[in-house]
Design a protein around this nucleic acid. Sequence first.
RNA 1: GCGAGAGUGGCGGAAUUGGCAGACGCACCAGACUUAGGAUCUGGCGGGUUAAACCGUGGGGGUUCGAGUCCCCCCUUUCGCACCA
Length: 863
Amino acid sequence: MSAYPVNLEGKTVSTPRDERYNPQAVEEKWAERWQSDPSLYAAEAHPTKPKYYVLEMLPYPSGALHMGHVRNYAIGDALARYMWMNGYNVLHPMGWDSFGLPAENAAIKNNTPPKQWTLGNIAAMKKQMKRLGFAYDWSREVTTCLPDYYRWNQWFFLKLYESGLAYRKKSRVNWCGQCATVLANEQVVGGMCWRHEDQPVEQRELEQWFLRITKYADELLRDLEKLQGWPEKVRTMQQNWIGRSEGTLIDFDLGGTVGPAGSTVTVFTTRVDTIYGATSLQLAPQHPIIADLTARDAGLRAQVEDLIAQQRLARETGDIGNIEKHGVFTGRHAKNPFNGEAIPVWVANYIVMDYGTGAIMSVPAHDERDYEFAKKYGLEIRLVVLPANLDEEETMTAPPLPYTPSDGMLVNSGEFSMLSCADAIKKMTHNAEEKGFGKATVTYRLKDWGISRQRYWGTPIPMVYCDKDGLVPLTEKDLPVILPDNVPITLAGGSPLASVPEFLNTTCPKCGGPARRETDTMDTFVDSSWYFYRYTDARNDKAPFDGAKIDYWFPIDQYIGGVEHAILHLIYSRFWTKFMRDMGLIKNDEPAWRLFTQGMVIKDGAKMSKNLGNVVSPDEMVARYGADATRMYSLFAAPPDRDLDWQESGIEGIQRFLGRVYRFFLKYPIETRRETPAAASVPPNAAAQPLTPEARALQRKMHQTIKRVTSDFQGRWHFNTCIAAIMELVNDIYGAEAAFASARISFLLIGELQRNIALLLAPMAPYMSHELWAMAGETSNLLKAPWPKYDAVLAAEDEKEIPVQINGKLRGLIVVPAGASKDQIEKAALADEKIQAAIAGKHIAKVIVVQGKLVNLVARDGS
RNA sequence: GCGAGAGUGGCGGAAUUGGCAGACGCACCAGACUUAGGAUCUGGCGGGUUAAACCGUGGGGGUUCGAGUCCCCCCUUUCGCACCA
C-alpha cells in the first residue's frame, strides 16, 4: 500500500484501480484468519467479566439465507461485537431448527433422504454465515434434528407425562391436506394453513398428544407485565391470544334426561346480570347434547348438519365473523334457574364449540348478535338493564336496543332489580353457587398445545402401546428413540413411521412383551421451545444442560427475531421455561428480558417472494459489494424495527462510503506519517500544543461522533443514525484535506481519527475495520479492543450559533460563546443588524432566551 | 368491531426533554479531473421568487412566546385478534 505515492498537495486526483477498496480480497483474507481460530468468539470458561447473552432466532435450514436473515444477524452481530468491545463476556451462538416438513417435501420431490437434504443445507448456510463474517461460537452449535439434541425433547416429554402435563385424547383437530398432518391452533391462520395460504384447514377426529399449556395460562398472562423489554405489540398479541375472560357458568335444566349427554345445558356468560332477559338458549351445532336431541328427528338432524356445513364454509373462507346467522328450534325448552321460566332451545351457526361451553343464553335486548338473531326469528326481546345516569329522566327512558353497556341498572329482574350491573353479577353468581346451579369461572381462548404430527421428520414420541399394559412411557435409559433412516415418505396420510416394522415393533418396558411404538412425531415448535438453554451446555450428554450454567447465562439479555414468532414460538418457549422452573431445573421464570422484533426486508414495496421475482440474494450482494457493505446497508437503510425496502442504489452509497474511508487510510498511511518532514516536525509533546482551528474542529467532531454513535447504539438501537454520524465525520475529514497538506492538522490527530473510525465501524463492518485497524498500525485484536470514549470537554463547542426568532419566526442567527449567559445572548440578539431592522418601530413585549438553544422576541406594533 | 403501530422533499429516512424541519444516503442538476467512467472530487437540490416576502411534517381545531413533537376530532394505511358469549 505504501507503493502508492501520497499526495501531500491535497489536490484532487483521479483514483487509480489499485487504490479502490477490494472487498473480496480483504474479506477473504480476514475470513481465513478468523476461521483458523475456532476459539475466537468463545465465551469465557471462567468468567471474569459481566455476562451478555445475545441471541438471534435460529433459522430453518431451507438451503440459503435470505435478506431477512442477513438483517436479523447483522443486528445481533453488531450488538455482540459492541458488547465485546465494552468488556462483556458475550455468548453469541447459532443453531438450526432442522426438523420439519420442507425436508420431507424435498425428499418426495428429489428423492433425497430428509437427513441428507437438511445436513447439506446446513453446511451451505453455515458457509454463507461465515462469509458474512458473523461472530458465532460454533462450538455450541445446536442442530435439532440430531439425536444428541432431540433425545432431550424425548426426555422432557417423559417429564411432562410424569407431571400430567402431556396427555392423550381424542379430539377434533385441524388438518391440512397439503401437509397431510395436524396443525396446532396457533398454526391456523384465518381458517387456512400457516404454510399453505390457499389450503383450508379441515376438522378431523384423531387421538392426539397434548401439552397442558393452559395450566400456565394465568401466569403466562400475568408475567407479560414483567416483560417491559418486549415490544408492546408482542405483549398485546400474547394477551389477546391467551384471551382471559371472567364470567359465570349457569346450568339450564331441560326437564328430564334427553339421552347419554344428560339433562342440563351449561352456558358461559360474562353478563349473568342480564339473565332475566334471556329468551332462548343457543347451542353450537356441534354441542354434545344435540346428538341426543336429534336422535329421533332426522329432519332436525339434517338442519343441524346444514348449520355445521355453513360454519365450516365460513371458516374456510375466513369469513366466520360475518356469517349470515341461521338457527333452528329443537322443540325443547330449558328452565332459567333464576326465574323458573322455560325458554326455547335453539341451535345456531353463530355459536362456536371451541369457546366457553359451546352454549349461550341469548339476551337480545343486551347483545348485538342475539338482537340480530331474535329480530330474524321473532324471538322475544326483553329489556332488563337501563342506563344509570345521574339524570333521572334519562334513566327512566328505555334506551335504543340493543343496549350493551355494563354500567347500567337492573330492572325486571326480581329481587335483583335496582342493583347496578356490577353488583348484580356478584350477587347473582353468589346466589347460583349457593343454590348449586352455577359458579364463577374464568375461560381462556388459549387451548392446550397439540403436538402430534403424522410426519416422519420430527422427534419420535417416546411412548409404546402394549396389549397388556396399554399406554406405557419409555424410561430414561431407553433414550434416545432414534428416528430411523430409509423411511418411505408419502403424503398419503398416516404416519410414515408406521410403515417401518423395525421401528414400530418393540418390547414393553413394563412387561417385556411385544408392543408397538407411537409413530407420531413432535411438532417442531417443541424443538425451538428450549434450544437457547442448550447453547449454554451444548455437548452435555448426561442432561439437557447444567443448571449452574443456566443460572449464569439466563435470562437472555437480548433476543432478536421476526415478529412472525410473536405468538407461536414465544408463547411456547415461555411455557417451557415455566415448566422447567417447576421441575426445579432452572430458576428463571422467563427466557428473555429483552426482545427485539426487526422489520421485514421488502423490495419495491412488496414482500420478497419467488412468485414476484423480486428476491435479492445475499450471495449476489456479497459477491458484488462485499459482506461489509451488505450488512451495513441492512443497518443503514431503515431503523431496525421498521420494514426495509431494499434498493440497489442504496447499497452502492454504502460501498462508496466505505471506499472513502479506505482511501483516507491509504492516503495517510502510518509509514508515511513517520517519514514525512511534516511528521518529523511535530514536537514530541504535540498533544499538549494548542491546535490549529482546523485541527480543533476535527478533534471536536471526532469526540462528538463517538458520543453520538455510542448513545445511538446502546440506548436507541438506531444503527442508521450511527452510520450517518460516522459519515458526517468522514465528510468533515475530506473537507479539511487542504489543512492536512499544509500540516495544519498533525499526524497525531490523523492517527487518532483513523483508530477511532476503525473502532466505531467495527461492529457494523467487521472485515474492513480489521483491515483499517492494521493499516493504522494496530496489532491488537480489534474484536475485543476497548470501545472508544469521548472527552466531554473536547466534544464541547467553543461557540454556538443561536437562532433568533421574532414572534416564533426565524429572523436571524447570532454566534455567542458556548457558555454565554442569558443576558449576553439577549444583548447579542438585540444588537444583531438583521434583528434590529426587523424590530424597527416595534415594541418588544417579551424576550424568551433558552440558554444555548434559541432567542424569541415577542414584538408588537407601535412603541 | 377491538387492540397496537405508522403517515415528514422525487425516494429511504433525521429531528432523544416542545426550541433553526429535512441530518445522512439515494436519485437528479452543474462543474472539475479525464482517451474513457457504472471511478473520484467540488457545489446545488421542499414549494415559491431575479432576490425576498410567503407557504410547507395526512386534514381540521386547540394549548403555547414557540408544535413534526402536547390535547381534541377526522382521514388514510400496516399488523394482530375477532359472532369470544
